[in-house]
Each structure stands twice: as structure tokens, then as C-alpha cells.
Amino acid sequence: MSCVQTIMDYGLRAIGIGERLLPRSDFTLCQQFTLIGSGMIWNIYFGIFALLFGFFLATVVALGKGSRHVWLRKPSEWFIFIFRGSPLFIQFFFAYFLFLSLKSVNPMFDAFTSAWLGALIVLFLNTAAYTGEIFYGALRSIPKGDVEAADAYGLSGWARFRRVIWPTMLRLAWPAYTNEAIFLFHATTLVYFTGFPAWQQRGDALYYANYFADKTFNPFVPYPILAGYFILLSLAIIGCFGLVNRYLNRHLPSDRRAKLKIRPQIIR
């Protein structure tokens, strides 16, 4: 089988398009690159949607934690504490069995036991907690002069938040948020090693890398391939977030613009 044919057969297998059966013997580099790359579709799916939904929830949580009202502040503080204080792997584990219990009560929860929804919810809540703490720190770091200037221009309430506080918060938090985004995409590899099943062997990149490592008894080929894909993905994230960072700092002189300093978290 040629490499082109392999790509046509397995390039979209992770989402159910193409050959149903996985190769059983005579594994080639092309098969490993193709199937692991196919699994990256799920990692990108989990990362993008968790970031998208988590960004807005994190803003709400950060504002809640900074609120003077205890009924807003305490729930935000406990939300951040629980999801930052417990391992992500354990969160996946308990969430799956919670959804499984709800499914036994009401069949409408059936979709929540699938990785595409259940695992996404866990990732969304987890990154919202971490990002919420980042945004809260940025809120506390907003110069008082910016707020006083907004008051002097007659801005208050929503107008002041939208035009002064929120943009400044994002500008201050963006470098740290970029690191959180990179770690979130790396954390998506935990999904299929928890309770969430890979239906019809449609797993993510690590799922297929582990499959080849088990079949060939040689982890030194599939895992470096997996690492290479994630390095490329991290570079793409850095590039995209760098463009946003440049936009957020466009009003500053070039020598005062914050530079992205990527410090990947090894242990969360």
C-alpha cells in the first residue's frame, strides 16, 4: 500500500471517515504519522472549544472573585479552588461516573458519557478556573490611573468595563493566558486514558501512539511522532496568540510592548 493510499484510508479515521479496521501488522512510518495525525483532530477540537467557552466563563469568574458581594465572591473562589486544587485526571474520572449515574436516571444524559461532550465539559471548567485566576490577577494589576482617567471622561458601569477595564485586563493577562492555552492542548491527551471510552477506536493522537507502541513494542517511534505534532501545534498557538498580543498592545510604543514569554508548565 502506497503512502498516498494510506493517507486516504486513515487520514480522517479518528472522526469515522475511511478505513474502519486498524492495521494489524507490518506497520509503516506512514501509517503511524497518518493515524497519529488523524487523532490530532480530537485534540484540536477539545482545545479550541474548551478555550472558547472557558474564556467567557473565566471572565465572569474573575469578576465574581473581585466582587465586593460575598454571594458572588465565594462561589467564584470555591470554583477556582476546586478545579485548581484537584488533578485533571481525577476530574475526568469523577465526571464520567457522575454522567454515567445521571444517564441511568434519565437517558437524555447519554451524550454526556461520550468524550466529545463529557470530556469537553471537564476541560472547559478546568481551564475556566485557571484562566479565571489569571484574569483576576490582571484585574488587580490594572493601574488606578487608567480607571481614574475613565471616570474623568465620564465612563461608568458597562462602558468603563468594555472600553477600559476589560481591554487592559486582557493585555496584562495575555502572556500567562498563552501558556495556559498551550498546557490545555497538552492536557487533552488525558481524555481517552480516563473513563471516557474511544467509540470504535476513534481516539486522539496519544490513543493511536499508544496503540502502535503496544503492537510494535517500540515506543521510540510513535511517541516522538506525537511529540513532533504537539510541538507544531504549540508553535501555531504561539503564533496566533502572538498576533492577538500585538493587537492588544498596538497603542503602546514598540519598546514598551509586552513580549510573549512561553514557559510551559510541566506539572499542573
Results as ranks from 00 to 15, higher is better:
218 N>D: 15
215 K>C: 10
234 S>T: 15
234 S>Y: 07
208 Y>Q: 10
224 P>V: 10
211 Y>V: 07
218 N>K: 11
209 A>L: 06
220 F>G: 08
237 I>L: 11
230 F>E: 01
210 N>M: 07
210 N>T: 14
211 Y>K: 07
225 I>E: 05
227 A>F: 10
218 N>R: 09
207 Y>A: 07
211 Y>S: 06
245 N>V: 04
234 S>D: 06
233 L>T: 15
242 G>T: 11
243 L>H: 13
214 D>L: 11
210 N>H: 13
244 V>I: 14
222 P>L: 03
228 G>Y: 00
210 N>Q: 10
224 P>N: 08
216 T>R: 03
228 G>M: 00
207 Y>K: 11
221 V>H: 07
235 L>D: 09
234 S>L: 04
230 F>S: 01
208 Y>I: 09
227 A>Q: 04
235 L>F: 15
228 G>F: 00
230 F>D: 00
235 L>M: 13
208 Y>T: 12
224 P>Q: 06
221 V>N: 04
237 I>N: 01
241 F>A: 14
212 F>N: 00
229 Y>R: 01
221 V>T: 12
222 P>Y: 03
223 Y>M: 03
235 L>N: 11
220 F>D: 08
209 A>S: 14
223 Y>A: 03
237 I>A: 02
221 V>L: 09
220 F>K: 10
215 K>R: 14
241 F>M: 14
215 K>G: 03
207 Y>L: 09
227 A>W: 02
217 F>C: 03
231 I>D: 00
236 A>R: 11
